[in-house]
Amino acid sequence: MSAAKPRKRASGWSLFIYVALAAYAASAIFPVLLVVYNSIKSKKAIFGQPLSLPGPGTIDFRGYETVWEAANFPRYFLNSGIVTLGSLGLTLLFGVMAAYALTEFRFRMSRWLSLYITIGLMVPIRLGTVAILKLVMALGLMNTPTALILVYTAMNLPVTVLILSVFMNTVSQDLKNAARVDGAGEYRILFGHVIPLIRPAIATVAVFTMIPVWNDLWFPLILANSEATKTVILGAQQFVGQYFKDWNAMLAALTLSIVPTLILYLLFSRQLIAGLTRGAVK
């Protein structure tokens, strides 16, 4: 196999690569670890010796206790999860369909429709908040996860369609035509043939669209700030005051809020690998 040859030739080079990767990895993970391990330190120690690891004198779980007592965080996690997965599902399903329509069929309006769908990326959606709020109230969706799911789906469709279009363009026409000859309908081609081929891209889009939804503060504040529908990020804000921040509780809440995104990421990451192996099998 050809793989053995470059490996041998490049052992010095590959050492350099590993060192570079490790260095970059350190710069990416160190700040995050800083937050995580400071979240179990006393406030004095956080600011007194932010670099040092929690030890006998400085370890302090007060932040987590406050978070646990002060608020209904399990409920918030559930809400965030429902909203994130709900909007993710809708975004991916409708985004895939729209992207397929726009790339597979060259009709007169397709480029203009592509432009239309990207408009959503050009104006901060925050500006439409009042109209969205009125709409949500008229639909009777105030303080429901549905309201957030719909808004986030609309918010994420543009980027989803934009990205998936690029990847759908790379799917072989022969393959689709062969399926058509076999009598498969367009939906069958899309879900049976195209989607498996662009799984890495779909997983990537899933990760991209999930992050802003999970981390958003604004729309939960406006559309779903009741105790029953609060999200994690909104719940964490109660530790930020005008003059005082409860640093312990904030770090604890933020650390906890990283965990679910990490889990979701790892799940999608498997899809990436799955896409890779399937591509190889083909």
Partner: peptide
């Protein structure tokens, strides 16, 4: 409400009637 978001949020809520 988070202090830096309060004025903006309150205005929007008034406009929306919530």
């Amino acid at each position: 409400t988070e202090p830096t978001q309060y004025d903006a949020t309150l205005l929007v809520k008034f406009q929306g009637g919530t």
